[in-house]
C-alpha cells in the first residue's frame, strides 16, 4: 500500500484524531476523497439517503450502518429481539427452550419490556401479576439518562399519560414513545454501590455475522449507596449510572470518573464468588451480545462499506445474571 489513508470526521474528538494520526493517516474534509469517514449518525443517514445519491467506492468505509437504529433505539431493539425469539420458537429451535415457568432458558437476556403507549394493556396485565414491582420508563429516542423515571404504581403511569396527552391533541409521534421495563431491583452491588457495564462491540459484517468484543470495557458506578427503598425512587443518583448524570452528583471524582475496568471486576468476582461462576457470567455476556446482533442481522442493510462500534449497557444482578439494558454508540 503506497497511498496514504485519508480520513474525514465530523467529530473533532482528540481520541479519534490522535488515533488516526498515530497510524500516519492524513485528514481531509468530507467533500474530498476519503477512505475512512467517522461520522455522527445524521451524516451517515444523509450519505445513504436516496436523494443524495452518493455511492461509496471500494476503498471507502464509514462507521455506521444505514439502519443502525434497529439496535440502538430502545423500542426497536426490544421489537427485534422479541421477533427473533418468536421465530426461533416457531421453528422449535433448541435455543428457544423454555423452563417450567415459560421463560426462555437461553434468550432471557432483556428485562420484561413493553412499548408505550402501544402495549399499554399488555403492561397492565403483567403489572397486576406483581403489583409491588418497580418499573423504569425511558423515552425511546433519548440518551444519557434524559427523561427516565421509575414507577411502582399504576396511578403514576396514568398520570403520566394524562399529562403528556393534555399537552398536545395529536397522537404521540414515534419519538414521544416510551419503553417500560421491569426494573432490576436486585443489582449486584460492589462496595455497596450499584454499577453497570459498558462493553464495546465492533461489527464488521452482519451476514455472516462478524463481531469483536473490546477487552477494555468498564463499570460505571453510582456515587450514592444503592437502596431498594421506594422513598428514593426520585433520587436518580441512586439508580442511574450514566456518567452524564453522575457528573452532577457532589461525590463525582474526576480522577477516575467512577469508572472501574472490566479486569478489576473479573478479579473481584473471582475473588469473592469463585472462578467458575465468573467465567459463566462473562460467557453469558458474550452470548447475550451475539444474540442481540443475530436478532437484527436479517433486518440490517449489510453494506460492506460499513462497520459499527456499539456500546452495550449491561446490568448484572445479584445472582450474577447479566441483563442487556440498551445498546448505544
Amino acid at each position: 500500500m503506497s497511498t496514504k489513508m485519508k480520513f474525514a470526521t465530523d467529530l473533532e474528538k482528540s481520541v479519534l484524531i490522535n488515533n488516526f494520526e498515530k497510524r500516519g493517516w492524513t485528514q481531509v474534509s468530507a467533500d474530498e476523497d476519503w477512505n475512512f469517514y467517522w461520522t455522527n449518525v445524521n451524516t451517515t443517514r444523509s450519505i445513504f439517503s436516496l436523494e443524495n445519491g452518493y455511492r461509496l467506492s471500494d476503498d471507502q468505509i464509514i462507521n455506521h450502518f444505514p439502519n443502525h437504529y434497529e439496535l440502538t433505539r430502545k423500542d426497536l431493539m426490544v421489537k427485534n429481539i422479541k421477533r427473533f425469539r418468536k421465530e426461533l420458537d416457531k421453528e422449535s429451535h433448541p435455543l428457544a427452550e423454555k423452563d417450567e415457568n415459560g421463560r426462555y432458558v437461553h434468550l432471557d437476556s432483556i428485562p420484561v419490556t413493553f412499548l408505550l403507549p402501544a402495549d399499554y394493556n399488555l403492561f397492565v396485565e403483567e403489572f397486576r401479576k406483581n403489583p409491588s414491582s418497580t418499573w423504569i420508563m425511558k423515552p425511546c429516542g433519548k440518551a444519557r439518562g434524559i427523561g427516565i423515571f421509575l414507577i411502582n404504581k399504576l396511578s403514576q403511569i396514568k398520570k403520566w399519560s394524562r399529562d403528556s396527552r393534555s399537552s398536545s391533541f395529536v397522537a404521540p409521534a414515534a419519538k414521544d414513545a416510551y419503553v417500560i421495563s421491569r426494573y432490576i431491583d436486585n443489582p449486584l452491588l460492589i462496595g455497596g454501590k450499584k454499577f453497570d457495564l459498558r462493553m464495546y462491540v465492533l461489527v464488521t459484517s452482519y451476514r455472516p455475522l462478524k463481531c469483536y468484543m473490546y477487552r477494555l470495557g468498564f463499570c460505571r458506578f453510582c456515587t450514592v449507596k444503592y437502596t431498594q427503598s421506594t422513598n428514593e425512587l426520585d433520587n436518580m443518583f441512586v439508580h442511574l449510572t450514566n456518567v452524564s448524570i453522575q457528573k452532577h452528583g457532589e461525590e463525582y471524582n474526576p480522577v477516575h470518573g467512577g469508572k472501574w475496568t472490566i479486569s478489576n471486576l473479573r478479579l473481584y468476582l473471582e475473588g469473592t464468588r469463585g472462578k467458575q461462576v465468573t467465567d459463566k457470567l462473562f460467557d453469558e455476556i458474550n452470548w447475550l451480545t451475539v444474540m442481540s446482533l443475530k436478532a437484527v442481522s436479517s433486518t440490517m442493510a449489510n453494506d460492506r462499506h460499513c462497520f459499527e462500534v456499539y456500546g452495550y449497557d449491561i446490568i448484572i444482578d445479584d445472582k450474577l445474571k447479566p441483563w442487556l439494558i440498551e445498546v448505544g454508540f
Partner: peptide, 13 residues
C-alpha cells in the same frame, strides 16, 4: 483509596 482507580469502589467498606 478514593482517588485510586483500583480501590475507589470500596471507600465505604
Amino acid at each position: 483509596a478514593v482517588n485510586d482507580d483500583y480501590y475507589f469502589v470500596f471507600e465505604d467498606y
